Amino acid sequence: MLDLCDVTVTFRDAARSRFTVLDLDHLTAQAGALVVLTGSSGSGKTTLMHALSGLLPVDRGHIVWNGTDIAALSEGARDRWRRDHVGLMFQDFHLIEELSPLDNVLVPAWFTRFRAGPLRARAAALLADFGVPADRRRLSDLSRGERQRTAFARALLFDPQVLLADEPTASLDAQAGALVIDRLQRLARDDGRFVLVVSHDPAVIAAADRVLHLSRGHIAQAAQAA
């Protein structure tokens, strides 16, 4: 499902000099398994996730999803591809404080033509599934863990075939974290989706089918989980 080849991503420092953040020779991965990406801070994990989603252009290389090389697409085409195929969970959530949890889950629908009734019902069902009270008027009424689960529900609104999640259990207690891990496993193994998770959480790593370790922009380890 994913075939990545000769991908390089560079950024500019304060002096406007280029430095390499990602330099990956080859990576393939299939749907149906929970893949966890680990590595120290600054190793390129979030950069890789953003490149895989098409949020970030690459300097060179190919990122092929089911025959579509998103690295070769324009920014607008990448945006359309991501909308149709990818659910994203950001480490900082990117929720809107002034909106209710339900309206936050519905934010992706602002950019599409959609029937409000069915999507509102799905959004409410997803929040209930994650134990988030949908009747709260503002996001400020939620705990940080409830906000994280709201972000998870938003990522699943359009029932994506690809889910990319950055530290999805970082703000959760053990019980809530176990709920999220179980959902990630079911999305991958039972529903046959492509699920890649960036995480330092030992519980998430233990639940993985495959663990990738990123070090200074390179994949240092690609192992099947025990």
Rank of each mutant, 00 (worst) to 15 (best):
L184W: 11
V86W: 02
L212N: 04
Q91D: 05
V64F: 03
F90Y: 12
A134I: 09
A72G: 04
L102V: 12
V7Y: 02
A124W: 08
Q161W: 09
V132R: 01
T150H: 06
L106P: 04
G54I: 03
G131T: 00
N104Y: 04
V86G: 04
A15D: 03
V198T: 07
T47S: 10
L22V: 08
N66H: 10
L157Y: 04
Q224E: 03
L214K: 06
P133V: 12
L212Y: 05
K45Q: 01
T46P: 00
Q175N: 11
D69W: 04
A151L: 11
F152W: 12
L34V: 09
D182P: 02
G177A: 12
R78I: 07
A14I: 04
G54E: 09
D201R: 07
D103C: 05
A222F: 04
A170K: 09
S140V: 09
L52G: 05
L139G: 08
H218C: 07
V21I: 13
T10M: 05
H94R: 14
K45E: 00
A206E: 10
S53R: 02
A225D: 03
V198G: 05
S199I: 03
A207G: 06
L172S: 08
Q30D: 15
D129M: 06
P133L: 11
V197Y: 07
